[in-house]
């Protein structure tokens, strides 16, 4: 129960920060023209909502196998958080622009922390499942 609550809380917070980073905390460049970072922001809002939804689902299920699956999904979501600014949608090209100086570092921090949390939780659940099987 403790693991379920803690891991779900971490996932929900990570999702929340994924949405807040490009919109409120470190907003992407403001421009009338829709630049690459605008689409990255939209994509991050989507991924953030997905991370929150999976975090909520994780609280509702007590089965460790379901939660293991959710943790693996969150692991790949963490990669997606970083893939949007770095590869898929991109950011503005100049290094001193707001999206590169603020948004990208924030997304790097969120992505790495989510990656570690999801990986550790998946490892823990897999080991616990094995031990229960014995």
């Amino acid at each position: 129960m403790k693991n379920r609550l803690i891991s779900s809380l971490i996932f929900i917070l990570a999702g929340l920060f994924t949405i807040l980073a490009p919109t409120v905390l470190f907003p992407v460049c403001e421009s009338e023209m829709k630049m690459s970072c605008y689409y990255t922001k939209q994509a991050e809002i989507g991924v953030g909502l997905l991370i929150i939804a999976l975090g909520i689902v994780s609280v509702l299920f007590s089965s460790s196998k379901v939660r293991l699956g959710i943790s693996i999904a969150q692991f790949f979501n963490a990669i997606l958080v970083l893939a949007f600014p770095l590869k898929l949608t991109g950011l503005c090209k100049m290094s001193e622009m707001a999206c590169r100086a603020g948004t990208l570092p924030a997304l790097i921090v969120i992505s790495v922390l989510l990656l570690i949390a999801a990986g550790v939780n998946a490892g823990y659940l897999a080991t616990a499942g094995k031990n229960d099987g014995k």
């Binding site: 470190f26 290094s95 001193e96 590169r100 100086a101 603020g102 990208l104 570092p105 790097i108 921090v109 790495v112 922390l113």
Partner: peptide, 13 residues
Amino acid sequence: ALIVIPFGRYIGM
């Protein structure tokens, strides 16, 4: 390292 290194340019700015 995770926070300070990526945020280097932001800190400078």
